[in-house]
Design a protein around this nucleic acid. Structure first.
Lengths: 213, 213
DNA sequence: GAATGTGAATTTCTTCACAGCG
DNA sequence: CGCTGTGAAGAAATTCACATTC
C-alpha cells in the first residue's frame, strides 16, 4: 500500500478525517491532492517529529520484577531507545545478567550516566528509594525521568517527570464496568459530561484530572 | 485538616479552582458555602463515584516478569482490586508461589473466572498468546481487559480493552527532550499548537491521538 | 475525479465573575 | 465575610465545507 487517504487513516484510527488532515498539516504539507499521503514518507516524517529516529540511551534503576520486565521489553528498541545500563542497589545483583546485560551497582550510577551521555532515566525501585535515586540521576545530568515507583518525585525546574501508575488503567476499566452494571439507573441520573462518555474502542480514554491518592 | 477549599485543592492539583468546583458539582453539591469541602466526605463520594469502594476481583494471565511485578504491586489492593488468581500456560509454573499465591494453569482459566465472578482480566503474556487468551477470557465472561502485550486485541462489542504500552511514556519524554535540545530552533519553526505545549509539572500530559505502530 | 489544506462555523471546554448561602 | 455553585463569557478544539491542486 504505497499511499493512503486521510479518510482511510481516520477510519482506522477512529477519528474525523478533517482532524487528521489538520493535525498532519502542522507537520507540513506531506500529502498530494487527489492522491493521499505517501505511506513511507509520512511514517518517516512523523517518526522524525516524535523523535523516534534518534537514539536515546536510557538507564533503568531498580532491577526487581518490574525493572527486569522493562529491560526485556521489546518495544523500546523499536522506538529508538537503547538500554544503556541496568542499575540496582543490591550487591548480590551486581554482575548478574538480566536481558543479556550485567546489572551494575548503584555506586557507579554517576559514572554510568556520564559515560553514556544518558538524559533519560527509568526508576523502578521501591517507593522508599525513589526520591534519592531521582536526585542522584538529576545531579548526574538526567533531565527526563519515567517513574514507576508509587511516590511523587520532586525535581528542580527543567527536569520532566512522568509517573506511571499501573492501577490507574485498571481503575478506568472498573469505572466503566461499574457503569455497565448500573446502566438502567443512568436515565434518571444527572449524568455528568465526562462520566457519561462511553469508552470507545480506539486507543484513547479519559482520565479525570483530579483524583484522590 | 477537616475541610478544604476549592482554592487549596486547585493549587495542589495545578488547576483552576472554578474548574475544580464545576467538576465536583457534577457529583452533587458536597461543599458548604463559606467553609469548603469536608475532606472525609469528599473522599468518600469521589471514591464511590470512581468505583473504588467496590471489590473487583481480577485475574492476571501470563506470569513472567511483568505478571509477577503486577501480582506484587501494592497499589491494586488499595484501589479495591483483589488479585483472584494468577494464570500461566507453562506447566512448570503451576503451583509455584508468586506474591504469596500459587500460579494456576491455563487449562483451568474458565473455571477460575466463573468461580470468582471475575469481570476484569489482565493480559501480560507474550504477544503471540494474547489474542487467544483474550478470547478465552471473554468467552468465560470477562468484559474488561487490560492488555500489556504489544498487540492490538480484537474483541466483540460490549467488551472494553485498554492497552498499556510502556514505551509510549518514554516516547513522550523523548519528545520533550528533543524540544529542549532544539530550543533555539523553535523560534523560526512553524510551531504546531499541540507540539508547542511545554510539559507541565502536574500529573498530566498530552498524548497525540494518532501515532504510527 | 479525487483528496488535500484550510478558513469559517460549530461544538466543547475552561475561566470569569458574582449571586446566594452558611 | 468567605467560599460554593453556576450562568455567561471567552478560549480552544473539532468539524464542516469548499477552493485548490494533482
Amino acid at each position: 500500500m504505497p499511499t493512503v487517504s486521510s479518510e482511510e487513516l481516520a477510519a482506522a484510527a477512529g477519528v474525523n478525517s478533517a482532524k487528521l488532515r489538520k493535525d498532519f498539516s502542522y507537520l507540513g504539507s506531506y500529502g498530494t491532492r487527489g492522491v493521499g499521503y505517501d505511506v513511507e514518507y509520512l511514517v518517516y516524517q512523523i517518526s522524525r517529529e516524535l523523535g523516534l529516529t534518534q537514539d536515546w540511551p536510557v538507564v533503568i534503576v531498580g532491577i526487581g520484577n518490574l525493572g527486569a520486565a522493562l529491560a526485556n521489553y521489546g518495544g523500546f528498541a523499536s522506538r529508538g531507545f537503547r538500554v544503556a545500563a541496568l542499575i540496582d542497589a543490591d550487591p548480590a545483583m551486581a554482575g548478574k545478567p538480566v536481558a543479556g546485560m550485567p546489572v551494575q551497582h548503584t555506586d557507579d550510577l554517576e559514572k554510568i550516566i556520564e559515560d553514556n551521555g544518558v538524559s533519560i532515566g527509568v526508576i523502578a525501585t521501591p517507593a522508599g528509594a525513589a526520591q534519592q535515586v531521582c536526585e542522584r540521576l538529576v545531579a548526574a545530568g538526567v533531565t527526563s525521568i519515567l517513574n514507576f515507583a508509587p511516590t511523587v518525585l520532586s525535581v528542580p525546574d527543567g527536569v520532566d517527570v512522568r509517573k506511571v501508575d499501573l492501577s490507574i488503567e485498571l481503575q478506568i476499566l472498573a469505572f466503566h464496568e461499574q457503569r455497565k452494571a448500573g446502566e438502567d439507573l443512568a436515565a434518571d441520573d444527572v449524568v455528568p459530561p465526562v462520566a457519561a462518555k462511553q469508552p470507545r474502542k480506539g486507543p484513547d480514554g479519559d482520565v479525570p484530572a483530579v483524583m484522590p491518592a
